[in-house]
Each structure stands twice: as structure tokens, then as C-alpha cells.
């Protein structure tokens, strides 16, 4: 074959929705792990993580320490990028588009506009269409998910309640998002407009949900996963992959827990494998009751 025939015949287009969403598709069925240094990133990769989230403190420490939580130090993010071959994500504050610009220039593979950090804007999220790097955003319900998608998010994750080791909020959010999707597919065309009004979401996206029966972008779960069975639970409920924050590196044996959660996520519907990987993990991270929390991170975002 002549080489000119084999060449790309048109230019390359970067940062398209298909390209942004494409990476989320590749992360399905996997585990994205929070890490705070290159050593943790290596442990995560060795355990089979599909990606790592580079941040300065895991959510349970942010919760304990209080104060303003910001984007991580670029040097630390670069150290983690250099340590692993899998994609590296990092968090920007809600509405803090300058932090997102910095993360994009560092070449991170996904930006998480995250409620775990202290919000920078009380009314606006980042205009994510303006970026080449893709964004993931948290949501507690379908309206919030569709508003984030309308702003350009290429992946949605449940917010859950980060840093608690308590899965109850993530379950609430997943059930709310997926339950409303199931209801909308039964709505007639007039009812779809009312759904859009109630959800405070663009009618075009609500119509798309009504027709396809799915969110227009992948739906992952975050916030409170602390055991292999937690991962199985949310995958069975309909999450397409999981984020694990404090659940790994605040457990007794991070490398063992990380590997077990990876295996549980792949084999989420097989109780025998789940029983096998759940043995001898030592203590999971300490958990918190939601009612006893001073700050609910999931309330951040608009």
C-alpha cells in the first residue's frame, strides 16, 4: 500500500465530545483510586486501578482538618504522572476555571470539578466546553447531572458523601438518578417538558434521556465506597465504574484492599468471587454516620 493512501486524509480534531467521553468509556468496569503521592499511585496501579486521582489529602483528612481545600501542588501531580502509565485525574474547585486551566496545562487526563474541595463560586460551575481536557462532575440527582452535562461534563459520578466510608448517600444518589431515568422513559412528550421544569434541566437533554433510557455520558459512583461488597452493590445498582477515595489508603492493608476492590468491581455479580476477595482484608476505613456530620460535601454544587 502506498504511504500517501494510508495517511489521515483530514486534520486531527482534539477535545471533541466523542474523544472526551471516549476515555470515560474506556474506564468502565474499573476502579479510580485517590492517591496523595507517587508511592500510593504505584500501589494503585499494581492493584489494577484504571486511573488515579491525584490530590493532596484524601477526603477523610480534608473533613478532619477543615479549612479551605484547593487544587493540588503541580509538582505533586507531575510526580504522580511520572510514576504511573495509567491516566491521572486531578480535582479543581467548583467554578474555579483558573485551577482547571492549570490542570489542563499539566496534561492531566480528566479534571474532577469536585465538591470535596471548597467551592470557589457559589452560583456557577466551570464552562467545561471551553476546555480540551474532559471533566467529571458529581451529582446527587438527575437534574444536577443534566445541568453538569449541559455545561460540558463528559462523565458524571454520584457525589455520595466523601470521606465517610458510608455508602448510604452514594446509594441514594444512584437510585435517584437511575430511578428518574426509568420514570422519564415512561413519560409522554408533554410530560417530558414538565420533567425538564422540575429537574431544572435543558429540555433537549431530558428528551434524549426519555428516548435512550440512559444518561448521555457514563455514570460512575463515588463517595463512601470502603469494601469490595460496596463496589459490588453500586455496580449492581447501575454504576458503570467506581471511584474509591479514602477507602483504600485509610484501610489497614491498602494494597490488599485495592486489589480486592478491583476484583469485586470486575466480578460484581459473582457472590462466590466476592466472598473470596472479601476475606482477610483487615479493618476497612473507620466510618462516619451521616447525621453526625458538621459539613455535608454533597450539598456543594448548584
Amino acid at each position: 500500500m502506498a504511504e500517501n493512501e494510508a495517511a489521515v486524509t483530514a486534520g486531527r480534531e482534539t477535545g471533541t465530545m466523542r474523544v472526551k467521553r471516549g476515555l470515560a468509556e474506556m474506564l468502565k468496569g474499573g476502579v479510580i483510586m485517590d492517591v496523595v503521592d507517587p508511592e500510593q499511585a504505584k500501589i494503585a496501579e499494581d492493584a489494577g486501578a484504571t486511573s488515579v486521582m491525584a490530590l493532596e489529602r484524601v477526603p477523610s483528612d480534608i473533613r478532619r482538618d477543615g479549612g479551605v481545600a484547593r487544587m493540588s501542588d503541580p509538582e505533586m501531580i507531575e510526580g504522580i504522572k511520572a510514576a504511573v502509565t495509567i491516566p491521572v485525574m486531578a480535582k479543581a474547585r467548583i467554578g474555579h476555571f483558573a485551577e482547571a486551566q492549570v490542570l489542563e496545562s499539566l496534561g492531566v487526563d480528566y479534571v474532577d470539578e469536585s465538591e470535596v474541595l471548597t467551592p470557589a463560586d457559589e452560583a456557577h460551575h466551570i464552562d467545561k466546553w471551553a476546555f480540551t481536557v474532559p471533566f467529571v462532575c458529581g451529582a446527587t440527582n438527575l437534574g444536577e447531572a443534566l445541568r453538569r452535562i449541559s455545561e460540558g461534563a463528559a462523565m458524571i459520578r454520584s457525589k455520595g458523601e466523601a470521606g465517610t466510608g458510608n455508602i448510604v448517600e452514594a446509594v441514594r444518589h444512584l437510585r435517584s438518578i437511575l430511578g428518574d431515568i426509568r420514570k422519564i422513559t415512561q413519560a409522554d412528550s408533554a410530560e417530558v417538558y414538565d420533567w425538564a421544569k422540575q429537574l431544572r434541566a435543558p429540555v433537549g437533554l431530558v428528551q434524549e434521556v426519555a428516548e435512550t433510557g440512559t444518561l448521555p455520558v457514563p455514570l460512575f459512583c463515588a463517595g463512601g465506597i470502603a469494601t469490595p461488597a460496596d463496589a459490588s452493590l453500586v455496580m449492581q445498582l447501575g454504576a458503570q465504574a467506581v471511584f474509591v477515595g479514602s477507602g483504600i489508603f485509610k484501610s489497614d492493608q491498602p494494597a490488599v484492599m485495592a486489589k480486592a476492590i478491583v476484583e469485586a468491581t470486575t466480578n460484581y455479580a459473582d457472590p462466590e468471587i466476592l466472598a473470596k476477595v472479601s476475606r482477610g482484608l483487615g479493618k476497612a476505613m473507620p466510618g462516619l454516620e451521616i447525621d453526625a456530620l458538621d459539613t455535608k460535601l454533597a450539598d456543594r454544587g448548584w
Binding site: M1, E5, A6, A7, V8, T9, A10, G11, R12, E13, T14, G15, T16, R18, V19, G22, L23, P87, E104, G107, V108, D109, Y110, T132, V133, P134
Partner: peptide, 14 residues
């Protein structure tokens, strides 16, 4: 390269 270099292109296939 990394994700920011990911791209779409029209490809001629033999």
C-alpha cells in the same frame, strides 16, 4: 500522548 492529545480523524482504510 495523553488525553489532551486524543483525537478524531478520518482514516483511509485499505
Amino acid at each position: 500522548g495523553r488525553q489532551v492529545d486524543s483525537f478524531e480523524a478520518d482514516l483511509r482504510i485499505e
